[in-house]
Design a protein around this nucleic acid. Structure first.
Lengths: 213, 213
DNA sequence: TATATTTTTTGATAATTATCAAATGCAGTA
DNA sequence: TACTGCATTTGATAATTATCAAAAAATATA
């Protein structure tokens, strides 16, 4: 399928927030995030979990390189990944996913085209991944999985809108404040240059904004 | 369901482009757009079409007012509608849909919350609409409908990304050019102030941009 | 047609952010 | 500790666009 006007656009989406207060193993966190999105029966959940695989990535290692077709939807455990792409001579950070969040290269995953996005680990990270074909197959059999999946897409769509509104109407300071509120961790764990790009501003502007006052 | 950080964000999405060369009745156009997205069996298509209703709106009339829960996904025949919302003292044009395109208030439609968006007709327009509950019910019964629906959402998600990239990286002139290329009609049929807002620039800037050179 | 109203354009100025360049700070390592 | 490389900050300037105000053009109305 071809989308008119612009080839190769993608997005990575954060579906859930860290639930504070108690520590759970990564697998339990994955279950919790799924349940939070769409409460499934025990058997449905077991079935869905069965198609997820676990791996670990060393800091700097690539989960996905630009030009590959991205077959997976991901969930990062304790750790951090960065999704980025090349635009003219610059690297644009499209998304940052830390601790117990989902992400994927939307256009590549859905349209089965080579990904413009690359994904690498910013820290040693445990990563869960689910293959596109396994998901589609399970959607055929399981109405619960299918609904969960739909929920993931619609949530992703709504988050995409929120991000767009932020970029369109908020200035550098407001965007920084939003990030500070929603994910204070990021500021401590991710280099400024990546954060600046993620916020759609230059490193210099971010530096000025955060040191103002 | 609550999306953290920002309540009330929505989007309207254009799923298809006008197919030039031959005129078809509105219903046939709707069928063509659906088939283009996801080719269905004849019976599947008939079933899906059965849940669409047709109405007409006079120029200026509202399809949806802010604060109402939006129960419908829409398709505009020959005509034009504008989707907008109030932000501080200003009216922001979120989307413009002309001639044979789908649109809906995403957040309200999916989350069943009051819509921040309002929708009105810019011209006398024939509008097809499909109720949320009918769609959901049909998705339960028909795997084809369910897949079509998923396709609509994913397409919408990808288009949302394209729009975001345009707003983030293109300047006023480039955004105007993109619109001029993708929908030259809009410029002739929609007041500049709406177009400017849709492009995320002021009316004055749009005026300067279009008259440059 | 003349008048009123709305839409669009033009001008001057201000605000925000990017760009380029250099200085400073910091971490790791010999 | 001193050195090296990288990340961050600071400064000066330029580019883009918003804002406010008014003029001009287009459209509707009497």
């Amino acid at each position: 399928m071809v989308v008119p006007g612009c080839a190769g656009t993608h997005i990575l989406c954060k579906f859930s927030q860290h639930l504070p207060g108690h520590y759970l193993g990564t697998m339990e966190e994955l279950v919790a995030r799924i349940a939070q999105m769409y409460p499934m029966s025990e058997s449905g959940m077991a079935e869905f979990l069965s198609i997820w695989k676990s791996t670990t990535y060393e800091k700097g290692a690539h989960l996905l390189k630009a030009g590959q077709v991205s077959n997976y939807m991901y969930f990062v455990g304790k750790g951090a990944v960065r999704i980025y792409y090349q635009k003219e001579e610059k690297e644009i950070t499209e998304w940052l996913a830390l601790d117990y969040n989902f992400f994927f290269s939307i256009q590549s995953f859905f349209q089965r085209v080579p990904s413009r996005l690359a994904i690498h680990a910013l820290e040693n990270s445990e990563v869960f991944m689910m293959h596109h074909d396994d998901l589609m197959q399970l959607c055929e059999q399981s109405a619960e999985t299918e609904k969960l999946f739909r929920k993931m897409i619609t949530t992703s769509l709504i988050l995409s809108q929120i991000r767009m509104e932020s970029i369109q109407f908020e200035n550098a300071h407001q965007r920084y404040q939003r990030l500070l509120t929603s994910s204070p961790d990021i500021l401590k764990r991710v280099p400024l240059s990546y954060i600046a790009s993620f916020l759609g501003i230059t490193q210099e502007t971010l530096s000025r904004v955060r040191n103002a006052r």
